[in-house]
Amino acid sequence: KELVSALYDYQEKSPREVTMKKGDILTLLNSTNKDWWKVEVNGRQGFVPAAYVKKL
């Protein structure tokens, strides 16, 4: 599985998104959309802005 690192804090703005803190390591589930990537963090799945994470 592919991992990404959070470059910035992000506070979810809808139920489809997830909150992350800078430095968090997230499991990348889907990166086909260039703007929003689906990740899993702390057992929750949702979307984060692609520009806020980088692949490890």
Rank of each mutant, 00 (worst) to 15 (best):
G46D: 00
A6M: 02
L28I: 07
Y8G: 05
S31D: 15
E12L: 08
T27K: 12
P49T: 01
P15A: 13
L3M: 12
K21I: 09
R16Q: 13
N33F: 08
V48M: 01
D24F: 04
K21W: 10
E2Q: 14
V18W: 05
E12A: 15
T32C: 14
Q11P: 06
D9P: 06
E2Y: 13
K38F: 15
T32Y: 10
M20Y: 02
S31F: 07
K54H: 11
D35P: 02
Y10L: 02
K55N: 08
Q45W: 09
M20S: 01
E12P: 15
P15F: 10
N42G: 12
A50V: 06
T27S: 09
E2A: 12
K22I: 07
K1P: 14
E40L: 08
G23Q: 03
G23E: 03
S5W: 15
L29P: 00
A6F: 01
P15W: 12
A50L: 02
E12G: 15
L7E: 06
K1S: 12
K13H: 09
R16D: 12
K34A: 13
Q11H: 14
V53F: 05
D9Y: 05
T27P: 13
Q45A: 12
L28E: 00
T19L: 03
A51G: 12
L28P: 00
L29Y: 04
K21F: 11
R44H: 08
Y52P: 00
L3P: 04
N42P: 05
K13I: 08
A6T: 03
K21N: 09
N42I: 04
K55A: 10
L26I: 08
R16H: 13
A51L: 10
S31A: 13
D9G: 06
A51T: 11
S5E: 15
Q45G: 06
V18I: 15
Y8C: 15
K54Q: 14
L29E: 02
L56F: 11
L29R: 03
P49R: 04
Q45Y: 09
E12C: 14
N33M: 09
K54G: 11
S31Y: 08
E12M: 14
P49L: 04
D9K: 03
K54L: 12
G23V: 00
K34H: 11
W36P: 01
K22M: 10
L7G: 03
A51E: 11
K1T: 13
V18Q: 03
P49N: 03
W37Q: 01
L56R: 06
Q11Y: 15
Q45D: 06
K22R: 12
K55M: 13
K34Y: 09
N42S: 09
V53D: 00
S31W: 10
P15G: 10
Q11I: 15
T19P: 07
G43Q: 06
P15E: 12
D35G: 10
D9H: 06
S5V: 15
K13Q: 14
A6E: 00
M20F: 11
Q11E: 14
G46T: 02
E12I: 06
R16K: 12
L56A: 07
G43D: 06
Y52H: 07
A6C: 13
A6R: 00
T27G: 05
K38A: 09
K22H: 06
A6Y: 01
K1Y: 15
K34I: 10
N42Y: 09
S14V: 05
T27V: 15
W36S: 02
L56I: 14
K1W: 14
D9A: 07
K55E: 07
K1A: 13
T19H: 04
K13Y: 05
G23T: 02
K34V: 11
E2N: 12
T19A: 07
M20D: 01
V39T: 01
L26N: 00
S31C: 14
V4E: 00
T19N: 07
S5K: 15
Q11S: 12
A51P: 08
G23I: 01
V18F: 13
K22F: 07
K13N: 10
M20L: 09
D35Y: 15
G23W: 05
Y10H: 03
R44L: 07
I25P: 03
K55G: 07
K54I: 14
W37K: 01
S5T: 15
I25Q: 06
S14M: 08
Y52R: 05
Y52W: 08
M20P: 00
K21D: 04
K55H: 11
K21L: 08
L7S: 05
N30P: 03
D35S: 12
W37D: 00
G43E: 06
S14P: 05
G43H: 05
Y8A: 11
T27F: 13
D24C: 07
D24A: 08
W37N: 01
D35N: 14
A50F: 03
V4D: 02
I25W: 05
L3F: 14
D35A: 11
K54C: 15
Y10K: 01
V18K: 01
N33E: 10
K34N: 12
Y10D: 00
T19E: 03
K38V: 14
G43V: 02
D35K: 14
L29H: 05
L56P: 06
Q11A: 13
E40N: 04
K13C: 12
A50Y: 03
D35E: 12
V53P: 00
K1G: 12
W37H: 03
Q11V: 15
F47H: 05
V18G: 01
M20Q: 01
V53Y: 01
S31I: 08
T19C: 06
A50K: 07
R44K: 12
W36T: 02
P15S: 13
W36V: 03
D35I: 15
K13S: 11
K38T: 08
R16E: 12
V41P: 01
L7D: 03
E17Y: 06
I25S: 04
Y10T: 00
N42V: 05
F47M: 08
G43A: 05
R44Q: 08
V18C: 10
T19G: 09
V53C: 14
L28M: 03
N33Q: 10
R44S: 06
A50H: 03
K38D: 04
E17S: 08
E17T: 10
L7K: 08
M20A: 02
